[in-house]
Design a binder for these strands. Structure first.
Lengths: 106, 106
DNA sequence: ACGGTAATTCTGGTTATTTGGAAATAGCGG
DNA sequence: CCGCTATTTCCAAATAACCAGAATTACCGT
């Protein structure tokens, strides 16, 4: 309805989305590798070699992480550099900690 | 192999498991309600009234949260009191923050 | 033991996710 | 434009998740 429609339940949905994205060992592994490779990032091919999973499978999971804003890509010639977006993670942890600290440890 | 078999990838799997459990709006909502009701906790029936979802559906999702250690139950007569287990969440956030802080913000 | 309340498990139908090979796309160098 | 490398999209099959009604278990009071 209103222009300011970022309600609390939107935040819950967005957080859930990101948690779900990280809630699969393969994807959490991908994300971890990217965080460790920060700030330079890692090419898709490097990730593939590192994690030893088929290209198409990696691509599928990367897309998931990108869709929810946890990872971003930048093209450099023929290779795509992937980077973890720390802001998204901070937002997610922030929601969790806020929820955790409401009414129980003020 | 060894008795001390809690490897780093076990931690990754356990974390992923918990993130997946929280990675569904319904379950994140359940968990949030329980955190807010801490330390007293909430009966299953109260949760059901609060969230307005069918009993069996709530039961299904609660089991998920219990299996991964995020929620515990204590029987009080005929009612089951549910509580959020803060330790599990702290472990999960700890893993995430540790991963986030390796090589990128020392 | 019986009746009532609280909650779980059973069951099935439906929908979403994961997976990886094969084919298609994108960009560069010659 | 052609070949080459890097990566994605397409596709089909196997698996897993979700939902909610009906049947079941658990516990208490009388």
């Amino acid at each position: 309805m209103s222009a300011r429609s970022v309600t609390q339940s939107d935040a819950l949905e967005r957080t859930a989305e990101r948690l779900e994205a990280l809630g699969r060992p393969v994807r959490l592994g991908v994300y971890r590798a990217l965080v460790r490779a920060a700030p330079a990032g890692l090419a898709v091919g490097d990730l593939q070699a590192l994690l030893a999973i088929p290209r198409s499978t990696l691509s599928f999971h990367l897309r998931r992480l990108i869709e929810v804003g946890l990872v971003s890509q930048e093209r450099q010639g023929t290779t795509l550099i992937c980077r973890a977006d720390v802001t998204a993670m901070e937002d997610t942890l922030g929601f969790l900690q806020r929820e955790c600290c409401t009414d129980c440890c003020p």
